[in-house]
Design a binder for these strands. Structure first.
Length: 433
RNA sequence: GGAGAGAUGGCUGAGUGGUCGAAAGCGACGGUUUGCUAAACCGUUAUACGAGUUAAAUCGUAUCGGGGGUUCGAAUCCCCCUCUCUCCGCCA
């Protein structure tokens, strides 16, 4: 959520930076300002009436104490109708306030000044690449062929269980997936200093609003119901990313400066309805409704936010480096950035069988956009209470990593060479037909 | 799922209709005293929104788990919900 004070005081700046996203959000600013002004005007009126009521009530109390009942009754008559006027004004305030809130919750974050201007993904600058595209002395297969031949994933039966876009990992495939999760968690915990957490996979609405997933992208989530009746529960949702629960761990809290920076790493499955992407548009494991991911979350002082973002990207890159996978890091331009982010780097891994780069990580600094939504603050050394920066990054998504790994390390004989760091987890150096 | 108990400021905990934003204690912070430390003593110690100011000061409103109601007035009475604890049932 954007700071309403910033919108009030620097409306032109806010409009200009929203406009750089190219989604037309700047057109809502004047409406916000109008509602905000209306709200303050109504607040002034109703608070004045409440002050009057409080004053008279207090006098009545004193009169009652002195047993001057008649005088007290007279005063009651005086204030009786004030209550109705207050109630009416309160309703108006609530209306205006929720209209204002509805827009504010749907306005995306302002892109950071260091972000490249652009409209589409074509304009995302490449920051760096690592390694080289794998070359083969034979015709490389794509991951679907490999999975079928080595019986790593049973696509048909996955669809039988849950529908298209759900995967059934089998045999070495299931073991490989588990080994990767373990490797990634250990890497970030032991070498990068993150604290491992394991969140619930079913989360409430507040988590979704807190990270900016809701209300704008409500149709992307799977809502769950308990049995027949959810009337008293409110809706719960399958997490689209571990970011949603983990970033919310300290929601509504006042942290101490000494607690920062906080770094969490979590494994979770991720559930994406992908509404509007009928049939998902891709075959195999590239785009599915459920995939595993190891997620990185940081809560940091604002002045450290962008340094910590660079470190987070480096942490995610390390995953690909130790697995010997060629990748590139791109910066998302203003037009391609996600809703909550002020600055985002994507890491794209090379998948030889696809002949394309696949996004396996997206690392963002959301600045205080999310911490304001979730009322998360910390007390600085000088005693100020301010919102910390919240960062999230994939470290990394698994399904596509799985694809790149198979396609990169496939051998002419149909086997898969397992990179050394993964071998202790999988207890083999090769997956053979 | 059933029965009961509870939710108050950073923490413990008092408060069953009227100067209660809230006693007391602890903690924290500032000060005095002190050879040093400790102790003692004095003081300060919530958040949000709005008005105000260059900035403060200051003023107003709201907040005692959340929402609604009764009343001139609610931490206190009524209703609904959530969560925590204890016991029973069920269960991995």
């Amino acid at each position: 959520m954007l700071d309403i004070k910033l919108i009030r005081e620097q409306a032109d700046l806010v409009k200009q930076r929203l406009a750089s996203r190219g989604a037309g959000d700047e057109l809502r600013i004047d409406e916000v300002l109008r509602l905000d002004e209306q709200r303050r005007k109504l607040l002034g009126e109703v608070e004045e009436l409440k002050a009057l009521r409080n004053r008279v009530s207090k006098e009545i109390g004193i009169l009652m104490g002195r047993k001057e009942t008649a005088a007290a009754e007279a005063k009651k008559g005086e204030t009786r109708d004030i209550g109705e006027r207050i109630a009416a004004l309160d309703r108006q305030v609530a209306e205006v306030e929720s209209a204002r809130e509805a827009i504010l919750l749907r306005l995306p974050n302002l892109p950071h000044s260091s972000v490249a201007l652009g409209k589409t993904a074509e304009e995302n600058p490449v920051m760096r690449t690592w390694g080289d595209k794998a070359s083969f002395g034979f015709k490389p297969k794509d991951h679907v062929q490999i999975c079928n031949q080595l019986k790593l994933v049973d696509f048909e039966r996955g669809a039988k269980l849950s529908g298209s876009g759900f995967l059934l990992y089998t045999g070495w495939g299931a073991r490989l997936e588990r080994a990767l999760i373990q490797l990634l968690l250990d890497l970030h915990v032991r070498e990068h200093g993150y604290t491992e957490v394991s969140p619930p996979f079913i989360i409430n609405r507040d988590c979704m609003v807190g990270v900016g997933q809701f209300p704008k992208f409500e149709d992307q989530a799977y809502a769950v119901q308990e049995g027949k009746d959810t009337s008293t529960l409110g809706k719960l949702y399958l997490l689209p990313t571990a970011e949603a629960p983990v970033a919310n761990i300290h929601r509504e809290e006042m942290l101490n400066d000494t607690q920062l920076p906080i770094r969490y790493v979590a494994y979770s499955p991720c559930f994406r309805a992908e509404a509007g992407a009928a049939g998902l548009g891709t075959r195999g494991m590239i785009r599915v409704h459920q995939f595993d991911k190891v997620e990185l979350i940081k809560i940091v002082r604002p002045e450290e936010g962008f340094d910590e973002l660079e470190k987070m990207v480096a942490n995610a890159e390390k995953v690909l480096q130790i697995l010997g996978l060629h990748y590139r890091v791109i910066m998302l331009c203003t037009g391609d950035m996600g809703f909550a982010s002020a600055k985002t780097y994507d890491i794209e891994v090379w998948a030889p069988g696809q002949g394309t780069y696949l996004e396996v990580s997206s690392c963002s600094n959301c600045e205080e956009f999310q911490s304001r939504r979730m009322n998360l603050k910390f007390k600085t050394q000088s005693g100020d209470k301010i919102h910390p920066h919240l960062l999230n990054g994939s470290g990394t998504a698994l399904a596509r990593l799985f694809v790149a790994l198979l396609e990169t390390h496939q051998q002419e004989d149909g086997s898969i060479r397992i990179p050394a760091p993964l071998q202790p987890y999988l207890h083999t150096d090769r997956i053979v037909p």
